[in-house]
Simulated assay, not measured.
Amino acid sequence: MLLSKGFEIEIYTGTPAGEIIGLSDRIVADLNGFVREPDSRNVEYTTPPLCQYEKLLCELVRPRHALRQYLKGLGDYTLIPGSTLALGETDRFFRSDPSNPYHTYIEQTYGTTVVTASVHINIGISDPELLMRACRLVRVEAPLYLALTAASPFLGGHITGSHSSRWQVFPKTPAYVPLFASHAHHIQWMEEQLATGTMQNVRHLWSSVRPNGDRRPYNLNRLELRICDLISDPVALLAVTALLEARLIQLIQNPDLDPLILSDFPTNSRNHDLAALSDANESAVAKHSLDAELHHWQDNRSILAREWIQQLYDEVWPYAKANGLSCFLSPVKKILREGNEAQRWLRQYEAGQSVQQVVEKAIAEVAASEAILTRELCEPCAA
């Protein structure tokens, strides 16, 4: 029983030296499948919802290959890994669509704190009450997925002290989001936010996870995990996705796997306590990723992020194996062993490389690995 999965990938464009340059207006005009973000320095593409991981891998890599070829036609341009403006200007907004009033609101309200790159993982769940239960569970475990994917330790040419500078500064909106106890609760809460103006529209729910669909908040069909930094390695992204999917399969087969049921927090304050715990865990992970000290939603015990991930991995492994996911899940162990992108980049910095050198090396390595994936995986898929 595999669930459908799709990705929204935001990525920076620029030069091999790491200078981030806004090209989204030209990309969107000339290439199918790409859409603009409010700032022109990054661009987004979306993969179709698919169940099979092998096909998803091709759908992740093929648009990037097409984009790279297009950028080469424009000049000496490439794709830049990472989730923040690692080099260059960080206080100026480069509007991609000056006539868009929603973009005006975003620029005036948030400035460049929203000029980040990330990956949103969408998992198809059509039953609204099951979807709300899934969102509750993923909300309290979302920090673990950020810990695996942190990739933004630099900003404006400097180290920031955070492994995910993106999530450290990203303006989560509204400031307080509860765990939705039911679909009706979600609808009521959303209508209240829109009425009071804390949300400008139904898209303006910027939290670590949210229910999504064709007519929010009424018609919903998927869970959207929004907390992850941009993962350069598509195989690693599929591993993180397999961990999430295996957990959701476990949830589907175990209806009581619900923070509002299993948590030891007092019943009358449980929702608020779990939301506060999750927010605190997100902040800790943004700072220290896999080495962050967190508090478990079940009993508030202290636990390191990497230990919690290992426990989760062991718990969902039987579900992954039973559904043919185990080979795609196993690269999670490599991330735990070798560190996420932020940790690997920081080790290079600590060994004496400059931020510029680390970024340049990452750009070249990602380009080379994507070329191999395109040649070995996508071309056979197309044939």
Rank of each mutant, 00 (worst) to 15 (best):
S302I: 11
P49N: 07
A184W: 02
T113W: 04
W317M: 06
S126P: 01
I261N: 07
S83I: 03
A305M: 00
N42M: 09
E129N: 11
P63G: 12
Q356Y: 07
Y218E: 10
Q310F: 02
S302D: 08
I106W: 02
K55W: 03
R92S: 13
V177G: 03
P49E: 08
H158C: 10
R26G: 12
V240F: 01
S289W: 00
A66F: 07
Y218K: 11
W167C: 13
T267Y: 06
V316E: 05
Q250G: 06
G88K: 03
R344S: 04
A29N: 12
D258T: 10
Q357K: 05
Q253K: 13
V359E: 03
S283E: 09
G22R: 04
L23F: 08
Y319R: 02
D91K: 15
Q253W: 04
T241V: 03
N219Y: 11
F34T: 08
Q348R: 14
A117E: 02
V316Q: 05
P255A: 05
R139I: 01
W308Y: 08
D256L: 05
L244A: 09
N340M: 01
Y70Q: 10
I249R: 12
I363M: 00
G18Q: 07
N340C: 15
L260S: 11
P143A: 05
A117K: 00
L262Q: 15
H185E: 09
L336W: 03
T47Y: 01
A276Q: 15
P49D: 10
A276L: 11
H296W: 14
A382Y: 06
N254D: 13
S96T: 11
A117V: 00
L130V: 06
I187C: 05
E107Q: 15
L79S: 05
A86S: 15
